[in-house]
Amino acid sequence: MVQPPTAWGPHPEPLAVDSAPLPEYGTGSLADLLPTLAAGMGVPGMTAAIPELTPADRNCVFLIDGLGWEQLKAHPDEAPFLTSLLAASRGGTGRPLTTGYPATTATSLASVGTGLPPGAHGLPGYTVRNPATGELMNQLRWQPWTEPGAWQPYPTVFELADRAGVHAAQVSSPAFANTPLTKVALSGGTFHGRLSGEDRMDLAAEQLAAADRSLVYTYYAEVDGAGHRFGVDSDTWRGQLMYVDRLVQRLAEQLPPRSALYVTADHGMVDVPFDEEHRIDFDEDWELRAGVALLGGEGRARHVYA
């Protein structure tokens, strides 16, 4: 029997410290999703930390970059299929997961793939200080290059599943086939590169049906790209949401027997006005610069090295 797809969207970055949800490590964070699915397939060493998830022989995780829970709830007209998954009265079982901290792509993807929080897997931000060189290292683009295993030495959930006889596969853009981030966060089993979203959905469904036990991951980046370039709620962003909603439905309609589809994201997104009132310029304030050797992280979550 095919289980209904489930929408598990991370909260966006919080707007106020006193209302910020803490990461629910061990009970309901992004890092707990794959281990819970793998535990249900009998992979040794995995813990089912999210008890609401019913075990399935075939599991597919579709990660939509940048689409948080609040954004989805605010745009039901653009995403009717995804929205239907949120309503228990219509068969949906969606509820929010929390991201780790900070909620940025490299950190979150590593948590998804390894099942570990940021402090354990070694990718704690967008840019971080390399203790060996003192330089800032961009963990999304992996520049300057350094040995990936030095940052993330643990096996991924896909690797552990593959060793346990589960068919593991990733279906994503060909551009990500050999990147260091893919190596440390999502390696294990086979990687399949496809350019179009439709081709990814079709191949993900094929890979899901390729064995009695399957763990398949697929990914779409352009919702996040449109939000960064044009803002959440822009026509371009709404168009991307409409498109990805159709992709999810396309994949859901092809699910083989004894399978489940989980739709999630790596982080949410909020628009920040680009004006002086909403900006704090480190370079223009000597009091902020005093005693600071290096400024890392990113605008949403700064790393200040004394």
Rank of each mutant, 00 (worst) to 15 (best):
G26N: 10
R229A: 08
W8P: 01
A209K: 07
T236H: 10
P256I: 00
S29C: 05
H303P: 02
S214N: 05
A301V: 01
F191M: 12
R163C: 04
G239L: 13
Y219P: 03
A88F: 10
S173D: 14
L85S: 07
A87W: 14
P76C: 10
L136K: 07
W69E: 14
P44D: 08
G125L: 01
A88Y: 11
G28I: 00
D199R: 15
G297R: 03
A16H: 13
L97P: 02
E135W: 10
G9I: 03
T133H: 11
Y154H: 15
L85W: 12
E277I: 00
T93C: 05
L195V: 13
A185Y: 15
A56K: 12
A150T: 02
L30E: 04
F230W: 14
W286A: 07
N178C: 06
R229N: 06
V157A: 02
F230M: 05
V43R: 10
L136N: 03
P118H: 11
S19E: 14
D162F: 04
E198K: 11
P96L: 06
W237V: 01
P10Y: 11
G122C: 09
Q139Y: 01
A169L: 08
A260K: 11
P4M: 05
R200A: 04
T105N: 01
E159T: 09
L215M: 10
D199V: 11
D271F: 01
K73P: 01
T83I: 02
S172V: 00
L181V: 03
A88S: 13
L255I: 02
E284D: 15
P117N: 08
T218L: 14
D235F: 13
E222N: 12
A205E: 09
A39Q: 13
G296S: 07
T93R: 12
G197C: 12
D32E: 15
D18S: 01
G26W: 14
N138R: 10
V166N: 13
L140M: 06
D275E: 15
R300H: 02
T47M: 00
G28S: 00
F81K: 04
P273R: 07
P180K: 04
L85R: 05
D57F: 06
A209Q: 07
V223M: 07
I280Y: 08
D18F: 03
F282Q: 10
H267N: 06
A221F: 07
E198M: 03
Q207C: 08
H75F: 10
H228E: 07
G42Q: 14
L67H: 09
L160D: 10
R246N: 00
T36W: 14
V184Y: 09
D65K: 00
T218N: 09
A56E: 06
V270H: 08
D77F: 02
G297S: 02
T182I: 05
Y126R: 02
